[in-house]
Computed example of a mutant assay.
Amino acid sequence: MNTTYLGLELKRFARDRVTLFFVAILPAFFYLIFGVAQDFGSESAGNGNVALYIMVSMAAYGAVTATTGIGGAAAVERMQGWGRQLGLTPLRDSGYVAVKATLAVLVALIPVSVIAVLGILTGAAGTAAAWGLSLLGVLAGAWVFALFGLVVGLAFRTEGAVNAIGGIVVVLGFLGNIFIPLSGTLLDIARFTPLYGYVSLVRYPITEGALPDSSGGTAAVDPLWLPLLNLGAWALILGLLATWLVRRGRGRQ
């Protein structure tokens, strides 16, 4: 991976104060509304309490929002001619994708760190393993969604498509079991969507695979291999698509 190019990308992102603000504040706001403001936040939930369960869920959502934005912005760059300039350098298409994915993970540290601090201050509780493994899982899987943003932007090649990524993430968030507990047919469908595997892995150190239903019971228990397979399959699909679309876009320029 080209560390010089990655350093330039980090400096450029740091100058975008408006984006920094929304990346850091919006997921934290959701945590305060859905977690801290609820009376059931202190109730037990596996190896932690409900507040911790909601905290890691919102951290995952914030990481996805940040990383898809990075991927979408990369697509806009290429549509504006940046790909032609990169074509004159030794940077390979796979290297370009790797730099953007790494940048996305580093940016995802912002909302994750903010929400983790809020969780400590507002009563999110759990075992040390539940805390550590869940937050590491948020960061470890976030790069997949930088590829998702890149694929959407490069496939449709319009700024409108890039702007629509935020709405797509909200829909996938519902299907990913982030905002409301799913059951029955909806849960069966959700298991094939991109965010499901990611969020399930993030929650696994807390719930050990148990999926709550709307009544407070357990809708199902997922074995660990299921979210691992989901995330791994989507990482492979999106990685191959992103590399192919980058190469195709360079050929058109």
Rank of each mutant, 00 (worst) to 15 (best):
W244G: 02
R78N: 13
K11S: 06
D213M: 12
R248S: 14
G251N: 13
E77S: 12
W131V: 00
A155K: 15
F13P: 00
L186G: 13
V107A: 06
P223Q: 11
A164E: 05
M58S: 03
A164D: 05
G41L: 08
T3E: 01
G7D: 01
L88W: 04
G41V: 10
A73R: 13
N49E: 01
L226W: 07
A129H: 10
G167V: 07
E159K: 12
G167F: 13
A219V: 06
W143D: 01
F34C: 06
I168V: 15
N230F: 05
G7I: 01
N230L: 09
L136D: 01
M58D: 03
G167N: 13
L103A: 02
S94N: 13
A219C: 09
E77G: 15
I25T: 13
L154Y: 03
I178Y: 11
G87P: 03
A242M: 12
G41K: 13
I54P: 00
A233H: 00
I237A: 14
A146S: 15
A63D: 03
L228E: 03
F148Y: 15
V221C: 00
A74D: 08
D213C: 10
P27K: 07
I189P: 00
A146T: 08
P223V: 10
L224S: 03
A220L: 13
I25F: 15
L172N: 04
F192E: 02
L118N: 03
P205C: 07
I25G: 00
A28W: 07
A124Y: 07
S57H: 05
Q253W: 14
L6F: 02
A104C: 04
I70P: 00
V97Q: 10
G95Y: 02
S134D: 02
N177Y: 11
L228C: 09
F192A: 15
A219I: 08
A233F: 11
G216F: 12
V36A: 06
L136S: 06
L103T: 01
G87R: 11
G251K: 14
R191G: 07
L224Q: 04
M1D: 08
A164Q: 09
F179N: 06
I54L: 13
A124D: 10
L147M: 14
G81N: 09
Y53Q: 05
F13I: 08
T158V: 06
L182R: 10
V18I: 14
A51V: 02
R191Y: 04
Y96E: 08
R15W: 06
G209V: 11
N177F: 10
L20V: 02
T218W: 03
V152N: 04
F21T: 14
A63V: 01
W234M: 04
R78C: 00
A101D: 02
L240V: 14
F174H: 10
G153A: 09
T4H: 09
V221M: 06
P227W: 12
V117H: 03
R15D: 06
G81M: 11
F145M: 11
T218F: 08
D93S: 15
